[in-house]
Amino acid sequence: MIHLGKNTTSRIISKGIAAGVSQNTYRGLVTAHRKATNARNFTACDSLLIGDKCGAHTVPYIEAKNSSALFEHEATTSKISEDVLFYCVQRGLSQEEAVGLVVNGFVKDVLQQLPMEFAVEAQKLISISLEGSVG
């Protein structure tokens, strides 16, 4: 994300889910050049790990070259909490449905930006790729 013009705003939301033996990497550059006054960026970069053989990698580069640029970056890595899963299962969801529910909640910020038909498609893809990864 390269800010060259004045008064520009950008937002990066990255949600990575790694299940099974997969590895997920976020690598991103945010920069504001000398003359890009009042550049604004917000980056949130969250990883969700499902299983103990997967990995998450976050490599952001944040380069500010003028004082009026305001950059905020947040990253978290977490797993699906046992408490949340238990709560869902206790309310009648299967383990898999519960994971799907949590994952969908996790990626909602991103998916809700998509046009309807893509969002539905994306949601289906997530549930397919999660199949069998829980247990």
């Binding site: 998450a56 990698h57 976050t58 944040i62 500010a64």
Partner: peptide, 10 residues
Amino acid sequence: EADNKPELEI
């Protein structure tokens, strides 16, 4: 100039 590279490898 401030350059920040906070990385996580989990």
